[in-house]
Design a protein around this nucleic acid. Structure first.
Lengths: 226, 226
DNA sequence: TGTACATCAGTGAACGCGCGTTCACTGATGTAC
DNA sequence: TGTACATCAGTGAACGCGCGTTCACTGATGTAC
């Protein structure tokens, strides 16, 4: 068997393990992840998994990286459904995609944005770049929109607290935009995130009745700089 | 010993158990709650706890109810620092109190708003009333503000999706207010909640630098109907 | 083409651990007469 | 005041369970000569 096929098989097994892990998180919650349970479902002994991941921690890290990247990929796909000349369409699509991804992959969402897993702490040098991708996408769309005049920043939100402005100014170049735009993105991010998180865990639906429509209204207000 | 003193001692022990449980959640996460660990820290055998709570589930329910009520109490205390004639001050104080309570009691916050605990499901008839208190407080403050003209609803947000409006209209009387005000409160709630949740789990601080100032700006925008 | 060897995925037993819950019990304290 | 009894907080052993990880191993497959 050629070496490349062997590697492909190895990686396919890694994917299989992660896929079973994701299914189990859905049933048991992120804290319920267990190598033995995964092995059982795969019809294999528990030590066999150690060929593919050196520990439970490593598997969790892989799942987290996948989740951050899958979310960012979803946003990028949404962005691409409109040309760069229509940043409002891009922004709307991206914001809706954020929620849709979360609803479609609730445990991945929990994994990256929810309670930390008891004994686990993520290796920052791996997760930070993956985690930043989503914000970078929102940043560049908004930046395009502001430059072309399609998106305006809310006056109420352009008065950035000095200490925050100082910090954002340091990071903004890394995102290829200004502190103002980055601030707007952070505000926007916290807004959609709160709505999604509360919906996911069942706090808003009993009150608003139709969470999709509720979120839609929230997104329109956000795009209009409200 | 008089019967009332016996009951008081019993309840004091219940409080002690919950307090140790809270400390352990802080260290181990909400999913790490364990009767045996609590008993160990109390210097007592595990079965002894069954005098006070019939099961781990019951203890968790008690902790959840306490948390919802403590949060609502914090909002009410904040509300009371301004007279009813100054609803903007009341609203600002309440919104800031929401974050302060969350930062002071991160695991209680996780417990009520974070990932569900694996094997546990809350008894709705007990938790729903407690959970609704916070929203009711924001609702009555906002209602006062709108009636007296101190608080105005953002135009962008008064266009409520029809399906949402229908549902809110059913619930609004129960909160002693209108569908519009309730909608504004839900929007406001999702906004501050997202900011707090992302801050608590470390997602916003590295970007905004000064989360207190960032949140402050967000609250001002919210009060101004932004 | 055949043989000796290396590679490596996967096994099964074992380690030490912690968990929620049950059970029959002890022993101190308070109550009734 | 003294005695028999009831109450009840707390104990210690045991139940059956699941966990992550280690270890020496088997047995199939591919490689070198």
């Amino acid at each position: 068997m050629p070496r490349s096929r062997i590697i492909a098989a190895y990686e396919r097994t890694q994917e299989q393990i992660k896929s079973v892990a994701r299914r189990q998180m859905q049933a048991q919650g992120t804290a319920g992840l267990s190598l033995r349970a995964i092995a059982r479902e795969l019809g294999v002994s528990a030590p066999a998994l150690y060929r593919y991941y050196p520990s439970l921690e490593a598997l969790i890290t892989a799942l987290i990286l996948d989740a951050f990247n899958a979310l960012a990929d979803a946003l990028e796909t949404a962005e691409a459904t409109f040309p760069d000349e229509e940043p409002r369409g891009q922004l709307r699509a991206a914001l809706l995609a954020y929620r849709e991804w979360a609803l479609a992959h609730p445990t991945d969402f929990e994994l990256i944005y929810g309670n930390p897993i008891p004994g686990y702490s993520a290796p920052a040098e791996q997760t930070v770049p993956a985690a930043s991708r989503a914000l970078a996408i929102l940043g560049r769309i908004t930046d395009r929109g502001v430059r072309s005049g399609h998106i305006r920043l809310t006056p109420a939100l352009t008065t950035i607290p000095e200490s925050v402005n100082a910090h954002l100014s340091l990071l903004a170049p890394g995102y290829g935009t200004s502190a103002e735009v980055l601030h707007t993105c952070m505000i926007g991010w916290t807004r959609i995130h709160g709505a999604i998180q509360l919906e996911l865990f069942g706090h808003t639906p009993p009150v608003v009745g139709d969470p999709t429509a509720f979120y839609g209204g929230l997104v329109e207000a956000l795009i209009d700089g409200g």
